[in-house]
Structure formats: structure tokens, C-alpha cells
Nucleic acid binder design. Structure first.
Lengths: 128, 128
DNA sequence: TCAATGTTTTTAGGATCGTTGAAACATGGA
DNA sequence: TCCATGTTTCAACGATCCTAAAAACATTGA
């Protein structure tokens, strides 16, 4: 990810409704959610949710597909991981001691890593 | 990190000059840089850099200390790691397969982790 | 084709943000 | 104290963003 896209992603995530929507879609998984369902859960009007979804889509954080009458939105996990990589990148240019806190994140936020799944985060088990 | 602070941090990072300043300070390490030096490197006016540094400070991304005539700013690595943790948090609520790309980041972006320092990122060695 | 449902676009407004230059403030040395 | 240096605050303006409501568009079934 280059600086331009990082700026775009940060801008997209700096708005309350959009951040909520993205987290909603991240939790929803690859199946995604229909625009209407998102609007209902976020408690905003359809036109407003459409506006914010477009912003998220332009930032590359979500994708959309039409299924019959509904338009289904889902999170782009690759963009999220790219953003995290971007955030870690420059840390590595400084001395290792400086970025020790980030190393801790790497080792502790291991919810996604099979062999270290000992509830390092306060995340609850997967349901559904 | 809660949602409120995450929003504040995203807003702070969504501006080109501020993102550049933060990356500059991350690379500079705990020693930090004087406001004047930052202004010079970022090629913005002193008043402008002061404005942006205040925003970064309010978001908790930098701290300042006075040394004689200069005010030295340095990156708050804990806030950065907190942001990364926040970004990974919800990923874990979905199925593990969904967040595999993030797991890859964790294992590959290992520049900070001593035992896996094999240039997984395209980051160049530290110069200067 | 017509009506119903789901979503997007458009328009307009008010609010917030970023930049600039001048003035003010803080510090250290003569 | 006075001056030089380094930084911050202030006020004003233009640009951008967010929201709301109405209209337009797309899809499906009668």
C-alpha cells in the first residue's frame, strides 16, 4: 500500500458511521450484508448508508455485488492487512527496541494464528 | 483503544502532512525531532507544522517536551500498536479463514521480531 | 406493463478542516 | 534589560465533508 491509498483509507475510517459499518462487515465475514441491513443496523437512512458505502468502496475497504434486488457489501480483508503492514513498515526503520510494543502486538494479537490461540485478546469465540 | 480514540487517530492520519510527520517521527525514534526540524523536512511553515503537531498530540500519536528553546516531538509507539490491535480485533470475530491475510501480516511483518528477520517486508535497511 | 421493493444519485445547506500571515509567547545569551 | 531564536496562537478565508429529502434507477413478480 502506498501513501496515497493509506491516506484514503484513513479518511474513510475517520468517520463514525463508516467505521461502524466496516467493523460490522468485518464481523459478517465474506458473506457480507445487504445495504438495507447495514442501514438498519447502523440506524441511518438508506441514502446516507449508500453515501458512506461508496466512500468505503472507493477506499478499497469494501466490495459490492448485486444479488437480486439487494446489493451485498463485504469487507476487503486484503486492504485491512495492507493498512496494518503500512503502519508497521516505518517502525522497522527505527531501532528494534523502539518498536517493541508493536512486536508485542504481533505476538499477542494471535487470534488468527492457530498455534497461539490462547485468548491473548479479549475477543470472544466465534459464534454462528 | 476504544472507538472514540480510534476515530481520533484515523482523522489525525488522514491528512498528508500529518501522516508524513508521524512517519518521520516513527523513523526518528524516541529521540524525536524539534518542531523547526519537522517544519523544514516537511516543507511547511512553522505555524502550519505547529497546527498539525497539536492535532497529532491530541490524538495521542505524539508527545512533546521542551528542551531549551526547542520543543521536541516524538512518536507514541503505544498508540500505534493500540491502533493495530484495534484493527485486528474484529477480524477475530469472523471465521479464522476470513482473516488469514491478517495472520500473514502478523507472521511476515516480523521485522520487529528477532527470530524471523528475513526481509519479509520490502523495507530497506536503516540508513543514517 | 404496472406496481412494489431496494438502492443510488442529486441538490442544497450547514459544519468542519486546512492554510496563511501577523502577532504573541517562551527561552537563552549579550 | 534588550535582542535573537524557536514555537504557538489568532483571525479570516476557501475548500471539503456530512446530512437530509426528493427524484431516479434497477430488479422482481403480478
Amino acid at each position: 500500500m502506498d501513501e496515497r491509498q493509506a491516506l484514503s483509507v484513513f479518511a474513510a475510517l475517520s468517520q463514525e458511521t463508516r467505521l461502524r459499518i466496516l467493523r460490522m462487515l468485518v464481523i459478517a465475514g465474506r458473506g457480507g450484508l445487504a445495504a438495507g441491513a447495514i442501514a438498519e443496523r447502523a440506524e441511518v437512512s438508506p441514502s446516507n448508508v449508500s453515501f458512506h458505502l461508496k466512500e468505503l468502496e472507493q477506499a478499497g475497504l469494501v466490495r459490492s455485488r448485486r444479488e437480486s434486488r439487494s446489493v451485498i457489501y463485504s469487507a476487503e480483508y486484503d486492504t485491512l492487512s495492507g493498512l496494518i503492514r503500512f503502519l508497521m513498515e516505518d517502525c522497522c526503520a527505527a531501532s528494534p527496541a523502539v518498536c517493541a510494543p508493536l512486536a508485542d502486538v504481533v505476538t499477542q494479537a494471535a487470534c488468527c494464528v492457530p498455534e497461539a490461540n490462547d485468548a491473548a485478546l479479549s475477543a470472544q469465540p466465534v459464534e454462528s
